[in-house]
Every structure is written in C-alpha cells, then in structure tokens.
Design a protein around this nucleic acid. Sequence first.
DNA 1: CTAGTTGCAAAGAGTTTGCATGGCG
DNA 2: CGCCATGCAAACTCTTTGCAACTAG
Lengths: 137, 137
Amino acid sequence: MLPGEGKMKKYETKQRKRILAVLKEHTDQQFYIEDLEEALKEEGEISRSAIYRNIKQMVEEGVIKKYASNKGRKFLYQYFENEVCLGHIHAKCLRCGKIYHVDHQVSRAISEEILNSLHFTIDKGESVLYGICSECA
Amino acid sequence: MLPGEGKMKKYETKQRKRILAVLKEHTDQQFYIEDLEEALKEEGEISRSAIYRNIKQMVEEGVIKKYASNKGRKFLYQYFENEVCLGHIHAKCLRCGKIYHVDHQVSRAISEEILNSLHFTIDKGESVLYGICSECA
DNA sequence: CTAGTTGCAAAGAGTTTGCATGGCG
DNA sequence: CGCCATGCAAACTCTTTGCAACTAG
C-alpha cells in the first residue's frame, strides 16, 4: 500500500471477515449500512458501530468505495476490485441499482472526448453515470 | 408545468426571492445550505427552516437541482437552467467545485457510446463526471 | 381577510464517539 | 498478555416538522 492511502487494518476479526464477505459476494451492488446489517443478521448480528468502523477502515484502505446517494442522506458502499475497476467509468441503474463497468476502451474514449472539448481530466473512479440498464428498460 | 412534477409555489416572499437570487448569481456553483445561509446573512438572516423549505420547494418545481456530496452528509444545490442544462452531462471539478457543461454534441456522443457498448440509457441530468478542470490542473 | 410562509424550538435520521469488556495475535 | 476491536448508549450533525405569529395577494 502506498503511503498516505490510509492505515492498514491490524486485526482480522470475525466481524470484519463477514462484512467483507458480503460485499465481495455482490461486487455489482452498492450497499447501505442497513442492507449490510440485514444481510449479516442471518449468521448473528454485528453491532452498528462495528459495521461503521470496519466500513470506514476499508474505505481508507481502498478495499471498498463510498458513494453518496441522491435520495436520502445515507451512503452507499461497494467492494472495489482494483484490477477490474481502475480505469473504468461506472454506470448505475436508477431502477435496479446494479453497477455496470463501462468497457475500458469506451471509458478511455469518453475521457478523451471530455479532455478535448473542455480540457477537463476525468477521475474515472469517482465518476458514475446514471440511467436505465437493458434489463430494466 | 407537467402534472406530477411537484407543486408550484404560491407566494413570492422576500426570503424566496433572495435565496433564488443567490443561486442565480452563481449558476456554475453548487451550494451547501450553510453556504446559502452565509451568503444571505449580509442582507439580514433567513431562518434555516425557511431556507430548507424554499429549497425543497424549488427542487420539486425543477428550478434547482439537488446533488449528494461524496464527502460529508450534506446536500448540494444548484440553479438549474432548463434550456441550458437539459441534455447536457455535467462535469464537476473536485478541486474548485465549479460545474462545467459538457457540450451537447459530446454529451450525445457519450450517451450513444454507452448505449452501444452496454445497452444502458444514460439520464444526462443525473450524471455528473468528476475530475480536475483546466484552471485547476 | 385567509391561506401560505416564517422563525423558533423540538423531533428525526444517520453517523460518530467514549468507555468498559472481549478477542486476535 | 497487550493492543486493538466490539457493543452499548450517548453525543453529534444535518434535515424535517409542529405551531403560533406574520405577510403576500
């Protein structure tokens, strides 16, 4: 890990493992804290503070990504596969919530178009396009 | 106004006029409630509840747009020029916060690329790209 | 006039934090 | 064993709401 990217975890607790497992199982989905809590409940509850603290830690480590949601004041969290996600723009379906990876080439093409027309350098990891996916259309 | 788009305002109060004036003066900027409060303070304070209620009303009317911010749990608000903003993707500078309009043609080109590669239909009004603008680079 | 709006204060919703206890290494 | 993490509850932050007083039309 590069310096300044946040502290590494110290202990590998049960709770942390279970939280990460849920996120890894659904890499195309974003979770509210309450979704995580719900999903975790089946094998025994984890306190909210533990969830919040672990999540926060993982965000700092770059293991998961934190997104703001347009409706309401809750945050969304998603497992972030560095190899897969870096350099990709993402698209989120407003109906089903699923996350799609915009193909590498297309992402780069878009990035270049914006650069040419506005001299604006996109941070692909931060940019999420919203719309309706093929399944929901 | 189309049905279902929200209620129209009833009264044109001093407070409402002043709030809208501030937003209209900086159409390339997004405001936190506290920024508005600060900007309004100079000509006499407006209560928070009045600011919140007016803002909420304007969002429902489509006069301004509400955005979630990635850091912190506050919302951002921006005057929404229908003629100018409709059909445009926006780009927000992560450093200075300024909002840029992605040219109509480029917006459409991007929209089509995504449609072709993912069969995903972008909602341009909801999509904001993040990055660094030319001035801040 | 009289319905919609303001300002205040109190209630909500989501997140963070202090502290004693418990568990990883 | 020592340090970090957990769980609980209380504190915080931002937003919403109830209500009496106040205005725009």
